[in-house]
Nucleic acid binder design. Structure first.
Lengths: 194, 194, 194, 194
DNA sequence: GATGAATGAGTTTTCATTCAT
DNA sequence: CATGAATGAAAACTCATTCAT
């Protein structure tokens, strides 16, 4: 990634966080980045491509953090770190949190599909952890993997969204253990079907 | 609700389901409803008000179903029915599912806030069930109630969204028990903090 | 043709004649017509459609004049009137002449093709006159009809273009007989191949 | 003409022929010529100057052919060769024909005026031939010289344009005699005014 | 109540040209 | 001489909303 492309992505995050998806005109992003409008188009195909590039870059950072922090820990510990990384990813960057949880979701259906594709590595990694946890006897070997992934992602996503909508009024990281406790219970072994 | 207001809401659901949020121009909804463009504004303040009216009406139907089906059952059974109602609400009405999970979420932040407010009765009812379940000793009395609600809503929401994005390729209702199993484990009593 | 559509076409002729093809912004045409920008799009699909509609309307007027003036005259007289109508069509309307001969020809290839199609009735009528003239023994029965039509159109077109480029400095109608004399000789009977 | 200037002109012909006037961006021409965008501006004042240079070069080639082929023949023969040279100029180079008849005519009025000036030697030479022909008693001494030139140019131009628009579907050179027959009749002596 | 013609604000994107290297 | 990254002006079109009838 060139330095200027990076510059524009950062500007986009700031502008979107401040003015919202619909107030994020290309010219505003350019001004924030300190480049001419046309320069944007040397680094991005079009406006949607800026948003795509932004999300791609940030998801990539998250996945790199995942790689660096998961190591060879037990699946149970990996899952906790995985979820914590997801929460920290946005909890430590409020403008990004606003972009990802609220603003980017206002994009067109077509765009949203493309953004979802970027989460494939996320789901793949999560799946691997769950599978290893099942094999290790830590996680519930009767549960449906797809729903387990959706529950984990959905719970975290909803928790973060609520926090963003509340205008960051509370410290979501301080409550992380309470959130993870519920997720953990859902996937841990030792439950019977009812 | 006047007859014509109802007519317009139904037209809006059909148009949004067919053409998507961005293809749902007021004139198209008017045409579908068989009224003049201007007539819309005799029944709704503006375009957002149509979407708001639509969601309000549909959520209202869901909440009425909740009331009718929850009865005096045990909290555990109520929770299962609650979640099932949520899934069935959209699983049995694919156009509505597309509207609610994908299209309506493209509306402006301001609008999304108003739509979220309509879910307050949903969260209040869910909260009541959880509290009763805790008091009855069925649900985990150590869990954070807010996160529990968010986990339940988030898991179901994510599951339905994935199903809609897949273009309804599988039978989500047939898998309901597998989904509920995970949710149930999360909130049930008998887990220890780690 | 609605009254307002007519209004817009007239405004377009004036604006194009005064500011040229590239200076004829939609907003300028709208202002000249005394309507809002958006109103243009109630009567025309897009900007090219204005130009197309303008040429279509004006060619239609020419062809109506042709019908009304050709009557049952001899082919020789009909040809002279035909050519004179073509010249008068533009000689008596300098703004239209500027549009047709200079400005409209700057449109994109695709558009030019569509404009050319509008001249099919012109060429068909000219062809009919030539055929009747040949059958009557007035016109050269050895000539190639396609080239004859092209020569007639090309000569008149070039003559008018030169006049427009000269900024209407001379009276092209006063010289009509001299122009027609040459055209007439080209198609008249009595010439031998060399 | 420097070697690089020639290189750019050739590139321009190829690019315009392939992509049309509006697809012939300076950067595309530069790429085709194998030079940097900025280099173009070391050899040409601006984009129009490239087109001007291209047409100037090609018209110059035509006029050189004229000089070499007209010799001391009779005016009648010279006229036929003159017209044939004009047709062959484009008939034997379809990309150039497309440029000259269709693409270059989409340029701005101002530019078109400059291009027309390049045809002055063409008209001067044609005029000379006609004058000599009249003096020699071969051509009609009653005809208007300006219109005669316009008829000849207009007829040939229209014939070639039609051929180009037809996508070169027929062999225009094979029909040259039929075209010239009509032109010849127009200017030859022996016709009476009617 | 109902109509629907008219309004007009608002934004992405291209590309000829420049100039620091 | 040559480069090519950066510039920034300029315009078509949509569509929610109004209001005279």
């Amino acid at each position: 990634m060139t330095e200027k492309r990076q510059l524009i992505i950062n500007a986009a995050v700031e502008v979107i966080a401040e003015h919202g998806y619909h107030g994020a005109q290309v010219s505003r992003i350019a001004k924030q980045a300190g480049v001419a409008d046309g320069t944007i188009y040397l680094y991005f195909k079009n406006k949607d491509d800026i948003l795509f590039g932004l999300f791609e870059y940030k998801v990539d950072q998250l996945m790199k953090t995942m790689e660096q922090t998961l190591g060879n820990l037990s699946p149970e510990k990996q899952l906790k770190i995985f979820v914590r990384n997801h929460v920290e990813w946005l909890a430590l960057d409020q403008p990004l949190a606003a972009c990802v949880q609220l603003e980017l979701r206002q994009s067109k259906k077509e765009m949203r599909n493309k953004l979802n594709h970027l989460l494939i590595p996320y789901h793949r990694l999560l799946n691997d952890i769950l599978v290893k946890g099942i094999e290790a006897g830590d996680f519930d070997n009767t549960m449906n993997l797809k729903f387990a992934r959706q529950l984990i992602f959905g719970a975290v996503d909803e928790a973060i969204s609520t926090w963003v909508v509340s205008d960051f009024k509370y410290d979501i990281l301080a409550q992380f253990d309470e959130l993870y406790y519920l997720i953990s219970k859902a996937v841990r072994r030792g439950q019977l079907h009812d």
